[in-house]
Simulated assay, not measured.
Amino acid sequence: MTLSTDPTSYIDPVGTAFLLLSVFLACAVEAVEALTIVLAVGITRGWRPALQGVAAGLLLLAVVVAALGPALTVLPLKALRLVVGGLLLTFGLQWIRKAILRASGYKDLRDEAAAYRRQIAAAEQATATKKPLVDDWYAFTLSFKGVTLEGLEVAFIALTFGANQHDIPLAALAAVAAVLVVAAAGAVLKAPLARVPENTMKFAVGVMLTGFGIFWGAEGAGADWPGGDAALPVVVAYVLAVATAATWLLRRRRAA
């Protein structure tokens, strides 16, 4: 960590690396789920209303980021880390819980191919309603909801990581890169990305979010970690060990 006279302008290489990785993976997971919806709608109902819904959803997410980003960056460093830590713990623990339940067999793994077939069936049965500027309101709203609901969680993750590192543009860049990679893959394949190891990615992101949430939340509450930022990988490794052990125990319980 390199310090400057401004306490909010330091550069944390470890935090920056985890920022890029966490935001990219989190956004990629949600983008895969949104892609499944958009593909089903576009192929079944037409690409124009589907892409209009995508554009509207992305515009709303951009407004959310633009509105909340500056508000987070004006908070004092300790207050910011306390807020960010709490938010990351909320998201991280939810992702870990779902990933553990799926990996241990207590919850079905998400099947993008099956989800795609369900979306296709629903889209084929729905009636078309024309609205101003939109030829098919059903296709528009379904794409809009898919992009917005999947994107909001990622937007908050990008904002919290970016605000804490005082580099929201970098977090936004990681999110945009993930969306572009998934969108490009979908455009080439013209099929849902069923082979993407979504649960493994969710497990990894959940571990990182929880580790950062613990680390930054404790700092925001006034705690001093032994070794400073060097303790962060240890915290993440501890969360990984606990989550892995929980998965192993639940698998054994289910097998018994």
Rank of each mutant, 00 (worst) to 15 (best):
D108V: 07
Q94P: 01
K145T: 14
W225T: 04
A243L: 08
P169V: 11
L159I: 01
V84Q: 06
A172P: 02
L39C: 06
I43Y: 06
L59N: 07
A123V: 07
T141C: 06
G42V: 09
V196G: 07
T148S: 12
L58T: 04
G15P: 01
K107I: 05
A230R: 13
L173Q: 00
A17L: 15
G53I: 10
I96G: 01
P13D: 09
L240H: 03
L19T: 10
A256K: 14
G220A: 10
R110T: 15
L159H: 08
A40T: 05
D224C: 03
V74L: 08
K130L: 08
K145F: 15
G69N: 02
M1H: 12
G86Y: 00
W248H: 11
L193I: 06
M1K: 07
V205E: 09
G69E: 08
V38P: 00
L75A: 09
I43L: 14
L75H: 03
G186P: 00
L101T: 12
P13C: 08
E30N: 14
L88F: 14
R97M: 06
A243E: 03
A230K: 10
I37Y: 00
A139D: 10
L142C: 03
A155I: 09
L58I: 06
F161Y: 15
A245I: 14
D135V: 11
A256Q: 14
A26T: 14
G228V: 04
